[in-house]
Design a protein around this nucleic acid. Structure first.
Lengths: 110, 110
DNA sequence: AATATTATTCGTAATTTTGCGAACATAAAA
DNA sequence: TTTTATGTTCGCAAAATTACGAATAATATT
């Protein structure tokens, strides 16, 4: 068994963050979050990049568990994976919330 | 002026996410969030990687605005950048909150 | 002035990411 | 059965990321 360098939570949070670490993938999620129907073509039309690249970004989001796809005739329907989305929301909330509580400025300045 | 492919928010969120997209950088932030004193050496001791690599990760977080450093004698003191940290919390909260409200399952499954 | 401590920068290598167009796969429609 | 429409995969190139040790810089300490 390899050394557990980081915690499961840290690894998972990093995985989510990495998947969201590109504006095109943020834009895809933004788009999916406000759509009912969400075919590949619709997403592709929204983005200024080649469709093969869009497909790659979708795969990255899918592998991180943030979205899911379903084949539907010659089309493919994508949507947010709400369960993992919720999990991501919790993890990011916990992570980003752990420093704001301590009021006052930063410990480093002045 | 180049084409504004993505919104400022999307770009900023992606920048934050990208900076957090590595377990070592998550671990650094976790550590900084619960420390008062936070010298490079302390951070370095927590991580299973070379100090030059730690320095690189710190630079990445600093360039994203999530942390800041201050020279103090031969040591360097790091801490969370609370202002941007708060901003990140707002952006992630808004982003990750925009899909959870719609109750029910995913649009794709079944 | 010489040495020790602390952290960054440099040089390098291996891997991953990003992006494109062409080729391919799949299934509906003609 | 041959098109047509829709996406994915392949092959490739350029750039960025990750990681390390050695060298360097800066400042205390002796």
């Amino acid at each position: 068994m390899a050394t557990p360098d980081y915690t499961i939570k840290q690894e998972l949070l990093a995985k989510f963050a990495k998947a969201l670490g590109h504006p095109a993938r943020i834009a895809i999620c933004d788009f999916l979050a406000k759509q009912e129907t969400c075919y590949f073509g619709d997403i592709n039309d929204e983005l200024p990049i080649a469709k093969s690249t869009v497909s790659q970004h979708l795969t990255a989001l899918k592998e991180a568990g943030l979205i899911q796809g379903e084949i539907e005739a010659p089309k493919v329907k994508y949507c947010i994976n709400k369960e993992n989305w919720r999990l991501a929301r919790e993890l990011f909330g916990e992570f980003l919330g752990q420093c704001v509580c301590k009021t006052g400025g930063n410990c480093c300045e002045r």
